[in-house]
Design a protein around this nucleic acid. Structure first.
Lengths: 103, 103
DNA sequence: AATATATTTCCATTATTTTGGAAATATGAA
DNA sequence: TTCATATTTCCAAAATAATGGAAATATATT
């Protein structure tokens, strides 16, 4: 379940960081350094997010880069909009331009 | 955390049912009958959703009606769109008209 | 091959969430 | 007041998830 993958402090933080970073992504070590998470723990969450389809991983040398899968995120938003925002005054709008949201 | 409230099978089912039902809502007993959940369990989840701000409850006689809080749902979608769908090709669109999604 | 670094897997521990029976509370009806 | 129904709270058991140290794996460098 994609929702469940995002519904966890640490994972949401990781995902947000990666969204901010953009499509190039960050390698595990960088994420670790930025968010101060034990390697094993981070690895666990990265797998969780990847399994859910929210992250794409690409190996580069001995680094593994993780980047958000925007398509998946769109699908999730689509699902929520369709199934959980109907019948009502739904008014979601996409700010395609970076809305620089400080942590 | 609102995400966490929705990120649970049973609660998502409850919320979807209520969204389908509309602003009048359903009383606990009806939800219970439809989704076949033990009363104590349902009560627990309803509280969870209410606490998260996703449901509004109104008492009517000895029945308690629960209805989705569409504003809260919009806020959640807004948050996700802002924070988790930036930098990318985000293209969420709201289908304000009922898109009859069968369970 | 030996060494160094990046990341993951293994695994046990701890923490959190979910579940539902039974008792309690609330409201209404007779 | 007594009885019936709706819902919740209490509480303990069961299930699931998160954490991180230590060992394993993978890749690169010398």
């Amino acid at each position: 379940m994609r929702l469940a993958a995002l519904a966890q402090e640490t994972r949401l933080a990781v995902f947000r960081l990666l969204v901010q970073t953009g499509p190039e992504g960050l390698c595990a070590g960088d994420i670790q350094a930025r968010l101060k998470i034990a390697p094993a723990t981070l690895s666990f969450h990265l797998k969780e997010l990847s399994t859910a389809g929210l992250l794409k991983a690409r190996q580069q040398g001995r680094f593994i880069y993780y980047a958000p899968d925007f398509k998946a995120m769109n699908a999730l938003l689509g699902y929520l909009t369709e199934n959980c925002c109907d019948g009502g005054e739904c008014e979601v709008e996409c700010t395609s331009s970076a809305t620089t949201t400080e942590s």
